[in-house]
Amino acid sequence: MDSIELARSVRLTALDLCHSKRASHIGGAYSVADILAVLYADVLNISPLTVDNPERDRVFYSKGHACTALYAVLNACGYLKGYDLLKEFTVNGSYFTSHVNHQIPGVELSTGSLGHALGVACGTALALKRKGNAGSVFTIVSDGELDEGSNWESLLAGAHHALDNMILIIDYNKIQSFGSVEEVLALEPLADKLRAFRWQVTEVDGHNHDELRKTLAESSLARNGLPKAIIAHTVKGKGVSFMEGQLAWHYKSPNDADYTRARAELEA
């Protein structure tokens, strides 16, 4: 499956999950869907058979609330053999919690409390360097979660220890829980802040697969003493016209009518 098809599949599965289980956060799942699709289709050196291989790339998915996108990509890529995601998601006794869970194959770290994964990624990146391991360490964070001070501790550490095997991807959809990022707690000028923290910063269209592929591949290879930050400009709810840029889809789960309309748009 190429990355375009994979992204479409991720959005459809996330739609199914959010609709059938009345789950939230479809907006954030859609803003990150293309990033995940390009990573899993074209960039990462992991497969369902190598989830424990020490040489694999590590992916820390910090925006654990947008779990449907990660579960969907793992499902489409064959990591969830023996599981029935659509049936098991959030049901009693299932490890498919609605914040991602490391009990699920392919999930490196449970997240859901924001601002934890980047520091774990720093420790992982340091360990790989000290052990002479060539794997790359990817961390996907949301924009709103950069409010958490712990991230800025980790940004200091990543640069100080020259963790150039780290690639931070910011899903910058400009909307957080209670309003726009600029209204709630402004991040701008974000690129300048990250550069001032001594990260190599690239800004991309987070829905343009060619741009994502090129930047992710280059960032993964460049061992130049600098950790990499990719600011992916995205649209919350991307792919479904009535969800795009709408705060409400941080919370709402699609009703039957929403579901039918969204499905038609995604399959068009």
Binding site: P54, E108, G115, H116, A117, L118, G119, V120, A121, C122, G123, T124, A125, L126, A127, L128, R130, K131, N133, G149, S150, E153, S154, L156, A157, H160, H161
Partner: peptide, 24 residues
């Protein structure tokens, strides 16, 4: 090679410890 001063940043220190522990 097995020592790190994490700075005055205990949240990140603890997170990094988890990252290091995951690698053995």
């Amino acid at each position: 090679e097995r020592f790190l001063n994490a700075g005055i940043a205990e949240q990140n220190m603890t997170e990094m410890a988890v990252g290091l522990a995951r690698e053995g």
